Computed example of a mutant assay.
Amino acid sequence: MPIPSSPASSASHRVIVYVDDADHARLLLQPLCAQPSAGSTHWMVVACAPRMTHRISKWVSHSARENWRIKWADKLFAQVLPWLQAGGGSVTTVVAKGPLAELSEQLQAEHGTAQVVDARRPKLEPESQATARAPGRWSLPNTLAGLGALFMLVAAD
């Protein structure tokens, strides 16, 4: 559901921004908004709604999921657009519905080459994976293997 861009769509600087959290995006985009060319920038803001599990289709229809995605994106745009438009640039909004690589190609075909900024909040690792990879932490399989080897050495004496 793109919002028509203003006559500044022929702006020399175009930026595609992937957003899923307004506060995180603001932190990442402040340096770009502070540049002197920000007033002539055409921002293409892509709302990346949280993924729903495949099991949700049992309980929610496709149209209800699409309506939720649009309402979620509208709330996000209401938070993001005021400070992007304050710099004087034009803004086009898009709701992502598929792979972002394909969407980027489509937007660049429509609007010309653009800088792509991923301003989405990073995904956190599940705690079990984080602790297994953290240096200095014990993991059960390695600990058991070490104890087994130690008992074999003690039993061999």
Rank of each mutant, 00 (worst) to 15 (best):
Pro4Cys: 14
Phe77Asp: 05
Arg65Trp: 00
Asp118Val: 09
Trp59Ala: 13
Ile56Ala: 15
Ala145Gly: 06
Ser63Pro: 05
Leu81Ala: 11
Lys75Val: 02
Asn142Thr: 04
Asp23Phe: 04
Gly136Asp: 01
Met1Lys: 00
Cys48Thr: 04
Pro7Ala: 14
Ala47Pro: 00
Val17Trp: 08
Arg137Pro: 00
Arg133Ser: 10
Thr131Glu: 08
Cys33Thr: 06
Arg51Cys: 06
Val60His: 12
Glu105Lys: 15
Val95Phe: 01
Lys75Thr: 03
Gln35His: 12
Phe151Ile: 03
Thr113Cys: 03
Gln35Asp: 08
Ser128Glu: 11
Ala119Phe: 11
Arg121Tyr: 03
Ala22Gly: 04
Ala25Glu: 09
Pro4Tyr: 02
Met44Asp: 01
Ser104Cys: 06
Arg55Lys: 07
Trp83Tyr: 09
Arg65Leu: 15
Met52Asp: 02
His24Tyr: 15
Ile70Trp: 01
Asn142Val: 05
Val154His: 03
Ser139Lys: 03
Tyr18His: 12
Leu84Ser: 13
His62Asn: 14
Leu144Met: 14
Leu153Cys: 11
Ala132Pro: 00
Pro99Ser: 13
Pro82Leu: 05
Leu27Thr: 05
Gly136Arg: 12
Trp72Cys: 05
Ala38His: 04
Lys71Cys: 14
Leu29Ser: 10
Leu29Val: 10
Gly136His: 11
Met1Trp: 00
Pro7Met: 10
Leu103Gly: 07
Pro126Phe: 12
Lys75Arg: 12
Asp157Tyr: 15
Thr93Val: 14
Met152Trp: 07
Ser90Phe: 00
Ser63Arg: 14
Val46Ile: 13
Arg51Leu: 12
Pro7Thr: 05
Tyr18Val: 11
Ala25Tyr: 01
Ala132Tyr: 01
Ser10Cys: 08
Gln115Thr: 12
Cys48Asn: 03
Asp23Ala: 15
Leu153Asn: 03
Leu84Glu: 08
Val17Gln: 11
Gln108Thr: 04
Gly146Trp: 00
Ser10Trp: 00
Lys97Asn: 04
Ser5Ile: 12
Trp83Ser: 13
Val117Gly: 11
Ala38Leu: 07
Arg69Ser: 13
Gly88His: 03
Gly87Gln: 08
Ala38Glu: 01
Ser57Gly: 07
Asp21Ile: 09
Val60Thr: 09
Val91His: 08
Gln79Asn: 06
Asp23Cys: 00
Met152Thr: 01
Ser128Leu: 11
Thr92Pro: 04
Val154Thr: 10
Trp83Lys: 10
Pro36Glu: 09
Val154Met: 14
Ala119Ile: 13
Val116Cys: 13
Trp72Asp: 13
Pro122Asp: 03
Val91Arg: 11
Met52Phe: 01
His13Glu: 08
Trp59Cys: 14
Leu81Gln: 06
Ala156Val: 05
Val95Pro: 02
Glu102His: 10
Gly39Leu: 10
